[in-house]
Amino acid sequence: MPVYSQTVMDHFMNPRNVGEIENADGVGEEGNPVCGDMMTFYIKVKDDRLEDVKFKTFGCGAAIAVSSMVSEMAKGKTLDEVMEITPQTVADKLEGLPKNKFHCSNLGAQALHKAIEDYRKKQKKGGK
């Protein structure tokens, strides 16, 4: 049996929404190279919805597939809806992740949540 599901392989081979957003409304980073994986998410917000999501990821196949899947799940959703995405819902959408990769590589949701927190913090400060 292959280590990764077909959906993981698809998102790894053809990752969606790779890149950076210039003047992003929020940026969130999670992980570090010591544990293996590192992800940065960039968001553009319009009317409380994620108008655009992009990511950059350093890591294994699972980490790249997770980032891609999270970006796809989040695009167009309201911020509150995006905050409900969890590592488990991401893994389910990917038709499962190897047991040992569930925690270390499944950081996409957290990174994206951090980007939203970053955006909300900036809003509170009154800045745009």
Binding site: F12, M13, C35, G36, D37, F58, C60, G61, A63, S105
Partner: peptide
Amino acid sequence: FIEGESLLMLLNSRGIAVSSGSACTSRAL
């Protein structure tokens, strides 16, 4: 600036078999 497992997988997709000592490649991470 890149990680070995994803490199291994992409090389494999081109028919090249290699291995890696990266954390992500090992079962113990």
